[in-house]
Simulated scan of single mutants.
Amino acid sequence: MTGELLRNPASTWADQARTSVAGARTGTLRTRSCRTPSTETLVSVEVADDGRVRVLLSGSSPAVPALAACRVATLTVPGPGSRVVRLTGSFTMDRPDESGVRSYTPTLLSVRLVEPGRDDVVVPVDAFWRSEPDTFGHQAAAVLRHLAAVHGEDLLAGARAQGYDAASVVPLVVDRDGVELAVLTLEGVDRWRVPFEGCVSAAGADLRTVRLPVECTCPDRV
């Protein structure tokens, strides 16, 4: 079992942000204007195949007059692990449908991955658009459950072999390229990124062919 501290380049952060946005169905929209109070509204989100985001608002939503006063707003959606993705952009309203629902499409100005207690990760907008969402996401929950339930001791031994004075290891995030673990020590919590060795991409693959970061021959691991 080999690994490295999680210090992802911008392209990897862009992949994570793009994947999170692609799977988003709800989020919060924060508007701001000198003429109206700042509002934070729970909204529905639609994402097209090309990654373009649409925010759906009812005609009575307080965000509608706020966006009319100032089109710049921030959409926040769940991100990987304990992070969220914040998309700030200029939101343009499409034509309302027959039910009166208004849809808004942002022209992105900034993309950030935000986690409490850590510096924001700024993802260049062009890198965000160049990245591809991870289609392995629908299998990720099964892999994480299996790692936690069956291979906790294996992961702990692997972390200790890498030099961590680990008390326990918790699988946090898995994607097509590897798994991110929280390593709990007496000094705090470290994040550890472990790549899938020998597996270029798990996207579209049968989960049983994906090599986990432990020796796993469990027939029912999914």
Rank of each mutant, 00 (worst) to 15 (best):
Y104N: 02
D119G: 14
G152N: 07
L184I: 14
P78M: 09
D190W: 10
F196Q: 08
T76R: 05
T74W: 04
R71K: 13
G178P: 05
L75D: 01
L156K: 03
L155K: 03
E153A: 15
R191H: 12
A182V: 04
F196E: 06
V77S: 01
D190H: 14
V72H: 05
L186D: 12
D119Y: 06
A148Y: 08
A140G: 07
A66K: 07
P124R: 05
Y164W: 15
V84N: 12
P171F: 15
P195F: 13
H138Q: 11
L109R: 12
L184V: 13
V114M: 05
A148K: 04
A140I: 07
A66L: 05
G137Q: 12
P133D: 11
R83I: 03
G178M: 10
P96Q: 10
R112C: 08
H151N: 10
D134A: 05
R160K: 13
F128C: 02
L113V: 10
M93I: 09
S110N: 06
L155Q: 03
G152Y: 07
G117T: 08
D94M: 12
R130L: 12
V143W: 11
V183K: 03
T105C: 12
T92F: 06
A159D: 08
V84E: 11
A159R: 03
V174P: 03
G163N: 07
A148G: 05
V84T: 13
R118N: 11
S82I: 04
R118E: 14
V85Y: 01
A157P: 01
V121N: 00
V85L: 01
D134M: 00
C70P: 00
A127S: 15
F196T: 01
R71T: 13
S82H: 14
G158R: 09
E132A: 15
E115M: 05
D126V: 10
E132G: 08
R176H: 13
V123P: 00
D126N: 08
A141M: 13
A142Y: 15
R83M: 10
V72G: 00
R193H: 13
V189R: 14
A142D: 13
A182E: 12
S131A: 11
M93W: 05
V72P: 01
L186Q: 12
D94W: 14
V114I: 15
V111G: 00
G117H: 07
V111L: 03
F128V: 00
D175M: 04
G158H: 14
L144I: 13
P171H: 11
P195L: 14
F136K: 10
P96E: 12
D165C: 04
G89N: 04
R71C: 08
W129L: 04
F91L: 09
D97K: 07
L184D: 06
G100P: 05
T92C: 08
T88D: 08
P171Y: 13
L155W: 02
E187I: 06
R83A: 09
V77F: 03
V111W: 02
V72M: 08
A182Y: 05
V111H: 00
D190R: 14
